[in-house]
Lab assay of single mutants.
Amino acid sequence: MAAAAAAGAGPEMVRGQVFDVGPRYTNLSYIGEGAYGMVCSAYDNVNKVRVAIKKISPFEHQTYCQRTLREIKILLRFRHENIIGINDIIRAPTIEQMKDVYIVQDLMETDLYKLLKTQHLSNDHICYFLYQILRGLKYIHSANVLHRDLKPSNLLLNTTCDLKICDFGLARVADPDHDHTGFLTEYVATRWYRAPEIMLNSKGYTKSIDIWSVGCILAEMLSNRPIFPGKHYLDQLNHILGILGSPSQEDLNCIINLKARNYLLSLPHKNKVPWNRLFPNADSKALDLLDKMLTFNPHKRIEVEQALAHPYLEQYYDPSDEPIAEAPFKFDMELDDLPKEKLKELIFEETARFQPGYRS
Rank of each mutant, 00 (worst) to 15 (best):
L75V: 03
A52P: 03
N224H: 09
D100Y: 15
F168H: 02
A92H: 00
Q249W: 05
E81Q: 09
N271Y: 14
R191C: 07
D162C: 00
S320D: 09
K164G: 11
N45I: 15
S360I: 13
D175V: 15
A7H: 08
E305M: 03
H141V: 13
T26E: 12
L157M: 12
S202L: 13
F19G: 11
A219H: 07
G182C: 10
T118H: 05
L156P: 03
I89R: 03
K342D: 05
I90A: 01
T181Q: 12
L163G: 01
L107W: 04
Y316D: 06
L116R: 03
I140E: 11
S360C: 12
S153P: 00
R148M: 13
R225C: 12
A325E: 13
A327H: 01
K300Q: 07
V145T: 03
H178G: 08
N82T: 11
N123M: 06
Y64R: 10
P23T: 13
L115K: 01
D288Q: 07
E197Y: 09
C254A: 08
R79D: 03
L343M: 13
S29R: 15
L155V: 01
K292V: 02
V18E: 09
D210Q: 11
Q306W: 01
G10T: 08
R353I: 15
A174I: 04
L200T: 11
M38V: 11
K99E: 09
I56S: 03
N158C: 11
P229T: 15
Y131E: 05
I165V: 12
A352K: 12
P280L: 12
Y43V: 07
L278A: 08
N276A: 11
D235N: 14
K330A: 01
V304I: 09
K330L: 02
V173C: 03
G182R: 15
R172Y: 04
M221G: 04
I217E: 10
A307F: 00
Q132G: 09
K207E: 09
N154G: 08
T26P: 10
K292Y: 06
P229W: 04
G22S: 01
K114T: 12
L308Y: 05
Q249F: 04
T26S: 15
P280I: 10
I302Y: 11
P328L: 13
A2L: 00
A52C: 07
N262K: 15
K54H: 01
Y102M: 08
E322H: 00
N27T: 10
Y102F: 14
R277M: 05
V188F: 14
G8D: 02
R194V: 10
Y30W: 02
A171Y: 03
K138H: 04
G245R: 10
P323G: 05
V51D: 15
D283Q: 02
P319H: 09
E349K: 14
I255R: 10
G204L: 13
R194W: 09
E220H: 08
K272Q: 11
K344Q: 03
I103G: 04
A4E: 00
I227T: 01
N47R: 14
H232E: 06
Y128R: 08
L222E: 10
D318L: 06
R225W: 01
I198V: 13
S246V: 01
K285P: 08
R79L: 11
S153I: 12
G169C: 15
D235M: 08
M108V: 04
R261I: 09
H61S: 02
E326I: 00
V49E: 15
Y43M: 07
D288N: 14
Q119N: 01
Q66N: 00
N238T: 13
R359K: 14
P298E: 05
A219Q: 12
K55R: 13
I256E: 11
K138L: 11
K55H: 09
A171C: 01
Y316W: 01
I302A: 12
P93I: 00
I256R: 12
S213D: 09
H180P: 09
T185Y: 07
N158I: 15
D337F: 01
P152A: 06
G10N: 07
Y317S: 10
I86G: 00
L137V: 00
C166D: 03
E334I: 00
I255S: 09
L237P: 10
Y193S: 11
N87V: 01
L335Y: 11
Y128A: 03
Y43E: 03
D124Q: 08
L264D: 04
N224I: 15
G22C: 11
R353M: 14
K330T: 02
F228V: 04
R91A: 03
R67P: 03
G242T: 01
L112S: 07
S248I: 05
L265A: 06
I256W: 12
P11G: 11
F168K: 04
F183E: 10
K344L: 04
E81S: 10
P58M: 03
K55G: 11
L163W: 00
D318Q: 04
T68G: 03
W192L: 15
L28W: 09
V214N: 12
S320A: 04
T351N: 11
D179N: 14
I74P: 06
L155E: 02
G85D: 13
I103F: 15
I56C: 06
Q355E: 10
Y187A: 01
Y102T: 06
Q105V: 04
A5R: 14
H141N: 15
P226Y: 03
W275S: 10
L289E: 04
P319T: 14
P268T: 14
N257M: 09
K151A: 06
N144A: 03
E303R: 00
N276W: 04
H80F: 05
M38W: 07
L237F: 09
E350A: 01
K55Q: 10
F129H: 04
M98Q: 01
C65S: 15
E81H: 11
H120C: 08
R172A: 11
P328D: 09
G8I: 08
S223N: 12
F354E: 14
M108S: 03
D251Y: 15
Q105W: 03
D283S: 02
S266E: 02
E350V: 14
L234N: 11
E334T: 00
M333Y: 08
L222K: 03
V173F: 10
N123I: 14
N238H: 14
Q315A: 08
K73R: 13
N154Q: 12
E334P: 00
R15F: 13
K164W: 08
R79Y: 07
T206D: 08
D283G: 02
L76Y: 00
L76D: 01
T190A: 10
I53N: 14
M38C: 07
S320L: 10
M13C: 08
P247V: 03
Q119I: 05
N224A: 05
F19R: 11
H80N: 10
Q17R: 03
F329Q: 08
R301P: 06
V21P: 04
Q132Y: 06
I209W: 12
R301H: 08
G85T: 04
D332K: 08
V18D: 15
K344V: 10
N257K: 14
Q105F: 06
S142C: 09
I243C: 03
G34K: 03
D175F: 07
R77L: 15
F59Y: 14
A4W: 06
I198K: 08
Y36G: 03
L290V: 03
D288H: 03
E220M: 08
D291I: 03
L76N: 01
N154S: 13
S202F: 11
Q66M: 10
E314V: 13
P176N: 04
L75K: 00
Y233N: 15
L294C: 10
F168G: 01
R301F: 01
M38I: 15
H180Q: 14
F183N: 10
V214W: 06
H269R: 10
R50G: 11
C65A: 06
H120V: 09
P11M: 14
K114G: 14
P311Q: 04
E326D: 15
R277P: 04
L346A: 11
M13G: 14
D149R: 09
L134I: 08
K270V: 03
G169E: 04
L184Y: 12
I240Q: 11
Q105D: 11
N297L: 12
I74A: 09
I84T: 00
V101R: 04
N154P: 01
F78Q: 13
L75C: 02
A35S: 14
T110D: 07
F296G: 03
R261K: 10
Y131S: 07
A92F: 00
H232C: 01
G22Y: 13
